[in-house]
Amino acid sequence: MGIILEKTPIILNKIPGGTIALTTADFFINWARKSSIWPLTFGLACCAIEMMAAYATRFDFDRFGVFPRPTPRQADLMLVAGTVVKKMASPLIRIYRQMPEPKFVIAMGSCADCGGPFYDSYSVVKGVDKIMPVDVYLAGCPPRPEALMYAVQKLQEKIGKMEIKENSGATAGQESGARREL
């Protein structure tokens, strides 16, 4: 993602040998953050297939700066792609707590949003927002890769509005680790 100069709070001045740019720290840090969202891929069900398609050549998430990471310690975003069963909930919380701040969560698909077709199941957590704060809800069963792309763009919009004076960008829910203590 390049910088669109017309939409940027930036002062440009030519000096001998090049250009000097003056901008706000908020804009610069947010630009860096939203241009390199590294997601931890948490593929749990069929949504993971669409997520893999989004990483592959036809949709090519790399051009957004989205590189899948295999470890929570290098990840900014957790893509919960699929049905979260109750047995998987505690590993999910544990991995979420290992991610460095600021961290974001996209709930991908109906199951991660609200339980989806398993709304009355005995074994499914009805929405991943019951165990961790969610930034973007993405509907669909499963959502197409274009929809996942749109969700990442919405997250980029959200990151663009963050201010460094408050808790280095983490929301109150993210600070406490979970919306409700389990």
Partner: peptide, 10 residues
Amino acid sequence: YVHKKDKFDY
């Protein structure tokens, strides 16, 4: 079987 609410059902 009758499901009793656990810590994830609320």
